[in-house]
Design a binder for these strands. Structure first.
Ligand SMILES: NC(=O)c1ccc[n+]([C@@H]2O[C@H](COP(=O)([O-])OP(=O)(O)OC[C@H]3O[C@@H](n4cnc5c(N)ncnc54)[C@H](O)[C@@H]3O)[C@@H](O)[C@H]2O)c1
Ligand SMILES: NC(=O)c1ccc[n+]([C@@H]2O[C@H](COP(=O)([O-])OP(=O)(O)OC[C@H]3O[C@@H](n4cnc5c(N)ncnc54)[C@H](O)[C@@H]3O)[C@@H](O)[C@H]2O)c1
Lengths: 244, 244
DNA sequence: ATGCATTTGTTACGTATTTCACAATTAGCT
DNA sequence: AGCTAATTGTGAAATACGTAACAAATGCAT
């Protein structure tokens, strides 16, 4: 048994090479998004140095991240934007439709169900569940909210492997157990609790309160509001003037 | 100038000691939440070993995290739950009301405005902004949506230092510049883009698509849906049976 | 009061991740 | 074809982070 905060470092198709670090995988998704934008802007090729300039991610980091998978670029030239975009999509398996289910059709869950970014990344939300009888049977965007107790039965049809969990903290573990029993192998958890899952199941936690707390800490050295003194040093894009 | 993915490692009140790693700060927020729950359950004291059992975070890690700040526990006894909870709150500056503003009263923004967890952590949302004239002037929960062009003016009143950014990617940089000009020092960014900010401003990104992509990658070694074979090994809490 | 079982705080160690630095590769130019 | 400027891919060095191990501190039982 395992209690999960981070995803365990397992290699898909365990070969000889060292598995890519999880931070590399996270950045891969960032690169993908960035490359999508570049491709829309008709940019043909890009160098690692230019990636650094535009994203702030160190150029060597970018190259090393890619090196875990294959060779993508041409020395002296750079990377073909469309090619790299598609190859990263293949690595992350966001090049083909992937089914998702969601539990918890509340405030946050409803926002997620209507989020077009999911489709754009080929995540296909196929079912939404709740335990509130006032909600079950009602439509949410293009889906009908279903009884959470039917999740196993319903997922025998869909065979989704990823679930989004957007229920209150107190219910999160209970629902997780249902999801695991329904064959779910990966959970994106929005409740601020650590879930207990078998070690065959991956969990990633999203916690805004945690993020806000970290920001709050970082401000704690500062005066409550530094007035507008700093603003005099800023150009009209809000950036520091005169810095390289 | 700096383009931010992670928060730079600056110590509040730069003294001699090494600054706490950012992962430590993230876990601190997790401990705080956990301690709140324990205090509600009337638990008086807890040992690092028990923290490990209940959260999955290594006991030595827990002790080391705390050691960056002060001594909190008694050897042979453990930690006083309420005391530790409050001292972590002080470290993260979530022991006193902290003003927030939010830009982007869309799907996600609306869910966030109504999120009671904010108040519980003493984050006090004081103003909401949008650029859609159909929304400006309308109420959202207990606030009135204001014109984003007024953000600087309005924040001269409130003097909030933290902003939540929930606008579409294309607008994110533009709005960020307004926020910086309005004296905002920390941004929680939900748009899947890297923001350019002066290095006096902290940014943390929240990206579900990135999280989903990492999960997607981890499943890529597996068969599409591993049927129910695995379920035979699970007890009725969905946990692996017979694993230590 | 002493001894024992427990648990902390911290130093030392090990692993993971990032950054550096450079040989190797490519395209364009003459 | 050979030279040049640009840029990759990658081992090696540097940094950051996590884990283990243990002396010091505490409370409890006798
Ligand atoms: N709203 C936000 O902006 C926000 C932000 C950060 C984190 N979160 C977290 O996300 C989760 C959901 O937040 P929310 O604001 O949407 O809450 P909510 O109360 O609006 O929605 C929760 C939904 O879950 C359903 N639910 C409760 N128990 C259930 C169960 N056992 N099975 C199935 N469904 C069940 C409820 O009926 C409700 O529809 C919470 O854990 C919250 O802490 C929310
Ligand atoms: N909805 C989700 O569940 C979800 C999930 C992940 C990420 N996101 C991200 O969060 C952001 C918001 O998503 P959403 O679904 O709420 O979008 P949305 O379109 O529902 O809302 C965006 C809001 O921002 C406002 N806006 C646009 N330009 C603005 C500007 N220049 N100044 C002020 N306000 C402006 C719009 O009027 C709208 O009200 C997007 O970047 C999206 O990618 C959303």
């Amino acid at each position: 048994m395992m209690i999960v905060g981070e995803v365990p470092n397992v290699t898909p198709s365990s070969n000889g090479k060292p598995p890519p670090p999880v931070p590399t995988l996270e950045r891969l998704a960032t690169y993908h998004r960035f490359l999508v934008d570049l491709s829309h802007a008709q940019v043909e090729t890009i160098s690692s140095a230019e990636v650094e300039r535009q994203t702030g991610i160190n150029a060597a980091q970018f190259r090393k991240d890619l090196s875990y998978f294959a060779q993508f670029g041409k020395p002296g030239v750079g990377y073909n934007v469309v090619d790299l975009r598609d190859r990263i999509a293949r690595i992350l398996k966001i090049d083909q439709d992937q089914k998702l289910i969601l539990v918890g059709a509340g405030n946050l869950g409803s926002a997620l169900v209507g989020y077009p970014g999911l489709k754009e990344h080929r995540f296909n939300l196929v079912a939404v569940f709740d335990n509130n009888y006032g909600k079950i049977g009602r439509p949410l965007w293009n889906l009908e909210i279903m009884d959470v107790t039917r999740v196993k039965e319903v997922n025998q049809q869909h065979r989704a492997r990823i679930a989004i969990l957007a229920v209150p903290s107190v219910s999160a573990q209970m629902v997780t157990d249902l999801l695991v029993a329904a064959g779910i192998r990966a959970i994106l958890n929005f409740a601020p609790v650590m879930l207990r899952v078998p070690d065959t199941v991956f969990v990633r936690n999203v916690s805004f309160l945690q993020e806000l707390s970290v920001l709050s800490y970082h401000l704690s050295a500062d005066p409550p509001f530094d007035g507008l003194s700093i603003l005099r040093e800023l150009d009209d894009h809000g950036n520091m003037a005169e810095t390289d």
